[in-house]
Amino acid sequence: MKKWMKILGILAALGVAGAIVGYVFVYNKSHPDYEKKTAKYVVSAEELFFAFKKDEMATSNQFNGQLIEITGIMNEVEATDESRIVYMVLGEGMFGNEGVRISMMASQNEACDALSVGKQITVKGLCVGYNETDVIIQHGTLTKF
């Protein structure tokens, strides 16, 4: 009897430990640290933009959800309330300019504000896709500028 109680106690403890691990490491797991993570792909803004224009599905399958490092000419920095959007313009369409739009992390505000238009920069960020106008990158950080 005592042996069974011991086994039940151990199983209950394992169950509680499993629930805690599940809550902390699965349900409540944090977003990746995009600033520290290494990029999976290194591409130029032109290569990325024209690859999406040429074959959206194949390029989406390769790059969407991946951390990539993009090098290109910075044409605009747009300020929003909390952060900055760096724009590498590569064409023109019905929504005006088209290219690679990178939503930067708030920690990059000061560095972005100091960028000069026309300068070549390299940015690391998460590719989330192409909206038929721009390639959209999130969580951007400047790596060379």
Partner: peptide, 14 residues
Amino acid sequence: FRVLMKAFEFEKAL
């Protein structure tokens, strides 16, 4: 409107 679904950001990664 054109909305990229992957651009939605949630509090929890899961």
